[in-house]
């Protein structure tokens, strides 16, 4: 049988075959293999738990630089990583359209396994539902994750103080542009790949330098860097001042955005880290990031100021200053 049928979601024999041949075959570990209704996990003796969830509905499900499978792992892992947690366990829920290709499902679950094993997390519980044709667009995945936050780690925008430095781990807008290029009706080819990947090593490297010197971290996904900076400024009740000249953007992303009338600061990323760190450890943290492959383009893009609170200011390449707002509405190609 090449395609998913409704029976695969019915709980019967086909459902069990699917679980064993596709999911357990790839994601096997002692906890998942018991196939109980819940995974039983040992609680850490000290420290606290971090818990996060995210849903993945990306179209196309395969794109240059990744696919919905590894994205579903990285997305939740990154949310845990920027909270200072070491990810341990994931859940994975699949909602599959009737008629979806079984071989594509296997490719996606293999990609999930590769991402999970590379990071050292286990998918310990999961669920699969199949819905009628047209009720879902091919495949949706939800993942939730649990991680251990060691004692002494207390990251939050509330920690951010005037004078702190803002560091970004690499170039912006790569994922957004790579996906736009695939969109029907836009049809352009681009050398830019999605930056879909884990930021765990980056986050852990910063915390290893000095956990008290890392105020907070974020992974800027939908809405781009501009939206994430605005969230941080509002939650921290501070002003973030960034320099347009210092913000790294690939020339192909700059050119693609110029063609479509878009701004790279609002394009999505799927493997970047923004960190706000204390000024006296900023240089050290930057050089630590730059020694990690996924952090080689890390750089300092600005700093924190007292006021105006809740605002992001952009110092333009021309030397003037303007407010950088959150994303308004959808990102659409424009002619003006």
């Amino acid at each position: 049988m090449d395609n998913i049928v409704l029976a695969h979601g019915s709980g019967g024999r086909l459902h069990h075959e699917l679980i064993n041949e596709v999911f357990r075959a790839q994601l096997s570990n002692p906890r998942l293999d018991q196939l109980l209704d819940a995974a039983i996990l040992d609680l850490p003796s000290e420290g606290r738990l971090a818990f996060s969830t995210d849903s993945f509905v990306i179209d196309p499900i395969f794109f240059p630089g990744g696919d919905i499978g590894c994205l579903a792992v990285y997305g939740t892992v990154n949310d845990l990583a920027v909270s200072g947690a070491i990810p341990r366990y994931l859940s994975a829920g699949f909602i599959i359209e009737e008629g979806f290709s079984l071989s594509e499902l296997k490719t996606i679950v293999t990609s999930m396994r590769q991402a999970a094993s590379q990071i050292g997390v286990e998918v310990v519980t999961g669920d699969t539902k199949v819905v009628g044709r047209g009720q879902v667009d091919k495949l949706f995945i939800n993942t939730a994750g649990i991680g251990l936050v060691p004692a002494g780690i207390n990251l939050s925008p509330g920690q951010v103080q005037s004078g702190d430095q803002i560091i970004i781990s690499g170039t912006l807008g790569d994922h957004g542009l790579a996906i736009l290029a695939q969109r029907e009706g836009l049809a352009f080819s681009t050398p830019v790949k999605s930056d879909c990947g884990s930021v765990l090593r980056l986050a852990q490297a910063l915390l290893k330098v000095d956990p008290t010197a890392v105020r907070c971290m974020r992974d800027p996904t939908r809405g781009g860097l501009a939206t994430t900076l605005n969230e941080l400024a509002q939650q921290g009740a501070v002003c973030l001042k960034v320099e347009e000249d210092r913000i790294p953007v690939l020339p192909a992303v700059q050119g693609g955005c110029a063609m479509l009338g878009m701004d790279p600061l609002y394009l999505a990323n799927e493997g970047k880290l923004v960190a706000i760190v204390s000024p006296d450890r900023a240089d050290e943290m930057l050089s630590v990031l730059q020694q990690i492959p996924e952090g080689q383009n890390a750089c300092r893009i600005g700093e924190v100021q007292e006021a105006p609170r809740g605002i992001v200011l952009l110092r333009t390449a021309l030397g003037a200053e303007r407010v950088l707002g959150m994303l308004e509405g959808e990102l659409l190609p424009r002619i003006c």
């Binding site: 701004d263 333009t316 021309l318 003037a320 200053e321 003006c336």
Partner: peptide
């Protein structure tokens, strides 16, 4: 002009007005 912040860098004697040239 807005994105580059040119207005703030021009002398006071020069005022830039936005025209009717936006299709929307």
């Amino acid at each position: 002009i807005a994105q580059s912040g040119i207005r703030d860098l021009l002398p006071a004697q020069i005022r830039l007005l936005s025209g009717p040239g936006c299709p929307v």
